[in-house]
């Protein structure tokens, strides 16, 4: 059992939750999401985000639209779908339960 693997496993679940939370306040494009995630030290490299976003989108939790950019290729602006919002609500309760569980058990 490697410590790195366990850490990664833990971060992975939280990461999805965090991405959905960021989009709760409105649409954003990957670079904006990355900035927030970097600030929270959740990810180190940007490459991590793209497959995650694609999978969340294909699962129907996110949708996106194209927007032209002055300084590069067109950008994908992601936003939550209805399913995504529902999904996020459930994750929120689960997260709160988990935090409680950790608090209780680690006392």
């Amino acid at each position: 059992m490697k410590i790195e693997n366990t850490k990664a496993q833990m971060r992975k679940g939280v990461l999805e939750y965090c991405i959905l939370s960021i989009l709760k306040n409105g649409e954003a494009y990957p670079s904006e999401i990355i900035e927030k995630l970097k600030a929270g030290k959740l990810i180190v490299v940007e490459g991590t985000l793209y497959p995650l976003l694609t999978r969340l989108k294909n699962a129907g939790l996110l949708s996106y639209r194209w927007e032209e950019s002055k300084s590069g290729p067109p950008r994908k602006y992601y936003q939550l779908t209805e399913i995504g919002t529902e999904f996020l609500k459930e994750l929120e309760t689960t997260w709160n339960d988990l935090v409680k569980a950790v608090k209780i058990t680690s006392k």
């Binding site: 990957p30 670079s31 940007e46 490459g47 793209y50 497959p51 976003l53 694609t54 999978r55 294909n58 950019s69 300084s71 590069g72 290729p73 067109p74 950008r75 994908k76």
Partner: peptide, 25 residues
């Protein structure tokens, strides 16, 4: 790395778009 995933092409395009953006800067 993504070869076996269905989203390979889409992920590649997203990553390339980001690389292009970083190069532009």
């Amino acid at each position: 790395y993504f070869k076996n995933s269905e989203e390979c092409e889409e992920i590649m395009m997203d990553i390339e778009a980001r690389i292009a953006e970083l190069f532009s800067e």
